[in-house]
Design a protein around this nucleic acid. Structure first.
Length: 576
RNA sequence: GACUUGUUAGCUCAGCUGGUAGAGCACAUCCCUUUUAAGGAUGGGGUCCUGGGUUCGAACCCCAGACAAGUCACCA
């Protein structure tokens, strides 16, 4: 179905047609021999002027200021923007000035991708500029892009801000909002830095199934799908933990994966249905060791991205310098509430939670209560990176029981800016205990807990062969990216955040009611508007609003006209 | 899932008590040899998110819905 084009789109399509008539290919196939970027010129021209006498650059046309025979444009390549000076008699040395007068001045639009050959100079105003000697069209753009302007004080004019449009048309967002691009560059720096760190340690990056017959490794509701040939239900993974541990059983000492995981749950500025987690498993280590690794790795990432360990996040400056603060979960609760819950019975804890103003219900066990108290009273207050250790066993069916503390597991989370950024434990490798924990989860599932884990018989078989003591880590790449880029929403660190589809555009045609109204007016030829309405309403059921809509529509379609007679009455008239 | 706010030109936004839909940028036409968000002049451009209702009359009031953002709940 052909969309109705806006005036500006029609102008551009007409320009495209004219360009073709002039024998110019608006989408040429040949490579364009780019030999420099905008950033390189800005960085190096002043101290090495001789190297920029013969340059070739390509980019998107972002602005033009035409001043008769001379004009200035700005082009933007992947590295940034640079000004281009175009002089009529230089790009058109002969008699034929079409390239300048018609193509450059009229047929090129902001958003077109062009190639420039020329040399670099500095204008009278002192701006490093490319003096164009040749100009070619590389791609014609058929839609107008938003024109965002920044003045000398750095104020942004006519910004492209609407989050919905920005996320739905991320390509436009990336073109016109440099800070958006910057956040994604930083995200990639983050994963590069992390990957380098892990590779230098000798761990192996692996890939494990995303389509899993059983989902496991986390407490979450999965996406279901179906494989036709096997005729079986499959799930999109919620975690890759159980697969990576199988690889530890298989004899790898350290494996990691940057994993896209999928959880069929609520969405918010911290949650997207698909998100990225880096999971790492290292044999013969424990959670204490893993804490040291996390500190070291994240400190290094901050250094690699920002050149320092401090990062501005909202109103806070977060410092990733080692060592980070460490609290046990009980310790954190005592620190923030003054209450020692460690020796409380479930009943005492229930009442304590209630007193603290936390919503509780009878189904909550000790572990859930502790988690609630912590989440409510402590988590949001932890701005600087902090490790919380030793979680209740009920919440952690895959973690090893604490070596000395009853009822706890060897688990830690790192909290930063009030949010969890990673989760790790000494992995449970006792197959008997693991089976028992899975069975407890099955019970929870029967009681209606949709997030309860399912029993993975193959995983149990694997660890029955023997998994060495292992430290495991899952670190949220999106969450960490948000912190490292000072982003307020996960959507700002995902190129294409999940959105509901947009409504389809309707084709407008006369409906039956409008046709009927038109027929009536035609029969009258001409009438006072109020009389026509009441006349029509005598024989037809129609509300005033619908009548009004119908006649407005008919006028738009130029099927009827409005006017006034000598008495000043509004007259409606059928047009032949 | 709940609550709050929003949706008007390609973009950013005004729009009074309900009374002919506005501005800046962009676009078009014309003039102009180094400009800096903006050279000058003139002009065109609208499904006021959708559907219903109230009203002589709705961008505006009422009801229902769509989409989004924020807060909360759940979760990483």
């Amino acid at each position: 179905m052909q969309r109705e084009l806006s005036e500006q789109e029609i102008v551009r399509r007409d320009a495209l047609k004219r360009i073709k008539e002039l024998g110019i290919d608006p989408y040429p196939a040949d490579l364009f021999p780019v030999n420099v970027s905008a950033k390189e010129i800005h960085d190096n021209y002043e101290r090495d002027k001789l190297s920029y006498k013969n340059i070739c650059i390509a980019g998107r046309l972002m602005s033009t200021r035409v001043m008769g025979k001379a004009s200035f444009s700005e082009i933007q390549d992947s590295s940034g923007r640079i000004q281009v000076y175009v002089n009529r008699d230089e790009i058109c040395p002969g008699e034929d000035k079409t390239l300048y007068n018609e193509v450059y001045k009229k047929l090129l639009d902001i958003g077109d991708i062009i190639g420039i050959k020329g040399y670099v100079f500095t204008t009278q105003v002192g701006e490093i500029t490319i003096h164009a000697t040749e100009l070619v069209l590389l791609t014609k753009s058929l839609r107008p892009i938003p024109i965002v302007k920044t003045d000398k004080e750095g104020n942004i004019h006519d910004g492209f801000n609407d989050p919905e449009t920005r996320y739905r048309q991320r390509y436009v967002d990336l073109i016109v909002n440099p800070h958006v691009k910057d956040a994604f560059v930083k995200r990639t720096q983050l994963t590069n830095s992390m990957r380098n760190y892990l590779n230098n340690k000798g761990y192996m990056e692996v890939e494990t199934p995303i389509l899993q017959p059983l989902y496991g490794g986390a407490a979450a509701r999965p996406f279901k799908t179906h494989h036709n040939t096997l005729d079986m239900q499959l799930y999109l993974r919620i975690a890759n933990e159980l697969y990576l541990k199988r690889l530890i059983v298989g004899g790898f000492d350290g494996v990691y994966e940057f994993a896209k995981d999928f959880r069929n749950e609520g969405m918010s500025r911290f949650h997207n249905p698909e998100f990225t987690q880096m999971e790492l498993y290292v044999a013969y280590k424990d959670y204490e060791w893993m804490m040291d690794l996390v500190e070291e790795m994240v400190e290094k990432i901050a250094m690699d991205i920002h050149g320092k360990t401090e990062v501005q996040v909202g109103n806070n400056v977060i410092n990733f310098q080692r060592p980070w603060k460490r609290f046990t979960m009980y310790g954190a609760i005592e620190h923030f509430t003054g209450i020692d819950v460690s020796k409380m019975t479930e009943e005492e804890m229930f009442n304590t939670a209630k007193k603290l103003g936390i919503e509780v219900d009878e189904t909550m066990g000790r572990g859930k209560l502790i988690d609630e108290i912590f989440g409510e009273m402590c988590e949001g207050k932890l701005i600087q990176p902090t490790f919380i250790t030793d979680y209740p066993v009920e919440m952690s069916p895959l973690a090893k029981k604490h070596r000395s503390k009853e009822g706890l597991v060897e688990r830690f989370e790192a909290i930063c800016n009030g949010k969890e950024i990673c989760n790790a434990f000494s992995e449970l490798n006792d197959p008997i205990d693991q089976r028992a924990r899975f069975e407890e989860q099955l019970e929870l599932g029967k009681r209606g807990d949709e997030e309860a884990m399912v029993l993975d018989e193959d995983f149990l078989r694997a660890i029955e062969y023997g998994m060495p003591p292992t430290a495991g880590l899952g670190i949220g790449i999106d969450r960490l990216s948000m912190i490292m880029t000072n982003s307020n929403s996960i959507q700002d660190v995902l190129f294409f955040p999940q959105m509901r589809p947009q409504k389809k555009v309707r084709v407008v045609e006369l409906d039956d009611e409008e046709k009927s109204v038109l027929a009536y007016i035609k029969s009258k030829e001409k009438a006072e508007i109020g009389a026509a309405k009441s006349g029509y309403q005598e024989s037809h059921e129609i509300s005033n609003k619908k009548w009004d809509k119908a006649i407005k529509k008919l006028r738009e379609e130029k099927l009827i006209a409005f006017s006034k007679n000598e008495q000043g009455e509004a007259i409606i008239e059928f047009i032949q």
